[in-house]
Design a protein around this nucleic acid. Structure first.
Lengths: 206, 206
DNA sequence: GCTAAAATGGACCAGCAAGTCCATAAACTG
DNA sequence: CAGTTTATGGACTTGCTGGTCCATTTTAGC
C-alpha cells in the first residue's frame, strides 16, 4: 500500500530494475542478507544510489521483498518440468532427483530462507509470499498424489492434501538441515522415506 | 581458538554472565537477531558495555554463539522426558504432542534458526553446534525406533537411523514453515504422517 | 526538435551500533 | 589488612549504511 507510487518504466528502466534485483539476489546468495549492503549491490550492478531508490522507493525493504519474490519463483521453476507431471512413480523419482540436485548445487545458501527469517517478522508481505509459495508447492504435490490415486497406485483413502503438506515439510526440513550443516543426507532420507511411504500406501495394503 | 582467553570467574561473575546470555536470548526471541543490539541487551540485563566485552571478549559474535548453544540445549530439554523414553506407541504420541505444544507456544520465533542462518555462514563453530544438536536429536529418535523394533512393533528391516533422519527433517521443516507462515498444520501433518509411516512399517506387513 | 517524464550520477547527511578506554569499586588470596 | 585480580560504569570514538538531494543526461511522445 504505502510503497511504490510506480513511475512508468521505460524499456531501459525495466532492464535496470531487473539487473538490480538479480544482482541483489546474487550478492545475498554469496554474502548472506546481513552481509549485503546497498552499496555492494550498487557496485555489483553498476548503478548509483539514486537508481536503487528510484526503482525501489521503499528502500532496502522493498528491494529485499522483490528479491524474495524472485527467489520464490525460482524455487518452483527449478523443479519443473517434473513438479507438474507427477503421474508415475518414475516421474516422482525424477522429481526427487531434481530437488536433490538443485539443493546440492545451491549448497549452504538458501537465499529465500534468509529473506524469510529476516523479513518475515517485519513484513506481512513477506509472510504472504511464503504462504503462497508453500501453497503452490503443496498443491502441485497434492495433484501428483491424486493422479496416483486415480490410476490406482495409491490408496484413495489417503488424505492427499495432508500428505502433500507433510512432504513439503519434509523437503523444507531437509533443506534447512543442509543449510545449517552442509549435509545432504537428511534431505535425501526425507524424500526417500516419504516416497516409500507413498508406495507403501498402496490400495492392496489398506 | 582465537577467543576467550577466559579470566577466572567469581561466583558473581558467573551469575552476571548467565544473566547476559539469558537476557540476550529473550531479546532475540522478541525482536529477532537483526533487531537486537548490544545496547538493548545491556539495558535489559542491567549491565554495562564493558561487562559484555569482559565476559565475551569476542564481542557480539561470541555472545550470539553462547546464546545459540543455550537455545540448542533448550530444544532438547523441552522434549523431555518424552524423547528419552520412546518405548511404546503412546510414548511416541506424547512426544509428538510435546513437540507440537512447544512450538505452538514459541510461535513465530525460532531463535535457534535465526542464530543459525545468521551465524552459520560466518562461524564454523555455529555449524558444529547445529550438527551436534541434530545428531543428538536423531540419535534419540533412532533409539526409540530400535526399541519398537526390539519389541517387534516395527519391521526390523527398516533402517532406523535413516528413518530417524527423515523424522528430524520432517519436524524441522514443519517448524520452519510454522515460523514463516504462522501455520501449525504442516508440523502436525509432518509428525502424524511420519508416525503413520512407522506404524505401517509393522513386521506383519513386510 | 521540443517538452515533459524518466533515468542516472554521486556528493552529502545523520544516526546508530560495535567496540575501546580508563577509572573505580568489589572480591578473593595469603 | 595489603595487594592483586576481577567486576563494573559509562563516556567516547569510529566506521559504516541507509537514505536524501539536486544536478545532469537520456528517452518518449507529439
Amino acid at each position: 500500500m504505502a510503497a511504490t507510487r510506480a513511475p512508468r518504466l521505460t524499456t531501459k528502466g525495466q532492464a535496470t530494475r531487473r539487473r538490480i534485483v538479480e544482482g541483489a539476489a546474487e550478492e545475498i546468495r554469496e554474502r548472506g542478507i546481513a552481509g549485503t549492503t546497498l552499496d555492494d549491490i550498487r557496485a555489483r550492478t553498476a548503478t548509483s544510489k539514486s537508481q536503487i531508490f528510484h526503482y525501489f522507493p521503499g528502500g532496502k525493504e522493498e528491494l529485499l521483498l522483490a528479491v524474495a519474490a524472485r527467489e520464490a519463483e525460482r524455487v518452483l521453476e527449478d523443479q519443473e518440468p517434473h513438479l507438474s507431471n507427477l503421474d508415475t512413480w518414475s516421474a516422482w523419482q525424477s522429481w526427487r532427483d531434481a530437488v536433490v540436485a538443485r539443493y546440492e548445487r545451491q549448497g549452504i545458501n538458501c537465499p529465500l530462507g534468509m529473506l524469510i527469517t529476516e523479513l518475515g517478522r517485519a513484513t506481512p508481505a513477506a509472510q504472504a509470499l511464503t504462504s503462497q509459495l508453500i501453497g503452490q508447492w503443496q498443491a502441485a504435490l497434492r495433484t501428483g498424489i491424486q493422479r496416483l490415486q486415480d490410476t490406482g497406485e495409491v490408496d484413495p483413502q489417503l488424505d492427499a492434501d495432508r500428505t502433500a503438506a507433510a512432504l513439503v515439510a519434509a523437503v523444507q526440513g531437509g533443506v534447512t538441515i543442509l543449510m545449517s550443516t552442509g549435509r545432504l543426507n537428511h534431505l535425501e532420507a526425507a524424500l526417500d522415506t516419504s516416497l516409500t511411504f507413498l508406495r507403501t500406501a498402496a490400495p492392496n495394503v489398506g
